[in-house]
Design a protein around this nucleic acid. Structure first.
Lengths: 231, 231
DNA sequence: CGCGGCTTTGATGTTCATCAAGTAAAGTGG
DNA sequence: CCACTTTACTTGATGAACATCAAAGCCGCG
């Protein structure tokens, strides 16, 4: 973990429009002075379940997993967040403590803004407040939908939808390096590691994907999509 | 469905503090004039998936189920809402159309407030805006947590946690009349009707509960609680 | 009073977890 | 840099959990 010094203004941030589009110059300044950028290397834990929620956390580069630890070694992954995702927004106003942990799957850069600044802006800028509620709804909708859909699918469908998630939404390529282990794959879909492996092998054998340890190539995109929707 | 005429002011509503605590008299008036109360009888569909979200819907009396229909006859229930729940709040600002249907499980009274009034209040009353974000976070947290917990449990644990939900959070009694069919029970926990029945029968045989068609009595509360947490 | 939906139980097969055992890869301390 | 240890990956075998199919009783309602 390393706090960056030479940070750029939110005004030139590519993700600015997602949430901060309604702020004027003075308000941008407020955010910028209350803001820090922090760099985490692969594997580092960013927040631990139970930590106080003191800031708005926002993912600039990299990839993080949100997870809960279940006593011993049985983690379960709630979701995977990519650049542009507002990691803590959904719980920022309702929870005093993080209901999950999150850690970096790759080298990850986050922005942190003090929670009081966000609350002040909601209190004083109605348009900003509205865009916060809009964004919260979208985040909730996405998590709930994903979980709901997964509960309907069998293992092949679940694995397929994860591969499509990485291909479509994270790497925008049919070939990518899987950023999670096979075990984490199981934790993400609530299935055993062994069966996650078996399913990947099967897709490989059937020619739907090509496996080279961590590198995955999707050969039959349409077929994988159908498995992810109906299987 | 029947629109009530003699409606009382939000100011004397028992649920007022949950969301509208920050409004002044003029603002209350605004809500009251934009508000209607609608009564639905058991079984009536209140909103259908795809309907426009034009109002803030809020449950005063009764019980509703939120569900998605899956082509033929395979519904899946997302959650069950009880008095005091803000049915549409989570999606009010982000979705133009309902991503699910909801219908009355008992005779149900809802309040509907035009969406533009709510947006106007968020825009002009910062404290109200903050309480909306707080409430949205709580709603999301509850849904996500419930789904996440359920995904970890086997059928016995899932059935147990539903029975505890009705006993603790809806009827506040160890004896209650189950408001859903066995089939809906299956739809709620993503299991087959037959296995939902079998599990209830098993609890009955073991003396944990007493079954009399729709009427359920919880005899061994602590044991059921343990099954709901660890099973 | 008969039809359709709800409920129930049993039998059968599928899907998946678990156990076991071994190989490969990656980190760790001397 | 190598021996050592741990973690990740893989495959097969077995059994548990659950879905599905089938058949029949029940109950409310037109």
């Amino acid at each position: 973990m390393k706090i960056k010094k030479d940070i750029e203004s939110c005004k030139v941030c590519v993700y600015r429009g997602l949430l901060f589009g309604e702020l004027d110059d003075i308000e941008y300044n407020l955010v910028n002075t209350a803001r820090k950028e922090v760099l985490y290397s692969k594997g580092e834990v960013i927040k631990t379940e139970g930590d106080e929620i003191a800031s708005f956390v926002y993912l600039r580069k990299g990839l993080v997993k949100l997870y809960k630890t279940d006593g011993l070694k049985k983690d379960r992954i709630l979701s995977i967040n990519k650049p542009g995702d507002f990691v803590s927004l959904l719980h920022l106003f309702s929870n005093k403590h993080y209901p999950y942990s999150f850690s970096a799957l790759e080298e990850t850069l986050i922005c942190e803004v003090d929670i009081d600044v966000i609350k002040h802006l909601i209190n004083t800028n109605g348009k900003f407040a509205l865009s916060v509620t809009r964004r919260m709804g979208k985040i909730a909708d996405e998590i709930i939908n994903t979980r709901f859909e997964q509960s309907r699918l069998q293992i092949k469908g679940r694995i397929a939808s994860i591969l499509l998630f990485f291909s479509d939404q994270v790497y925008h390529s049919k070939t990518f390096k899987l950023p999670i282990t096979r075990r984490e794959m199981g934790e993400l879909i609530a299935m055993s590691t062994e069966n996650a492996i078996r399913t990947l092998s099967e897709f490989n054998k059937d020619g739907i994907i090509t496996l080279d340890s961590k590198t995955i190539t999707i050969n039959e995109y349409d077929q994988l999509k159908e498995i992810g929707e109906k299987g």
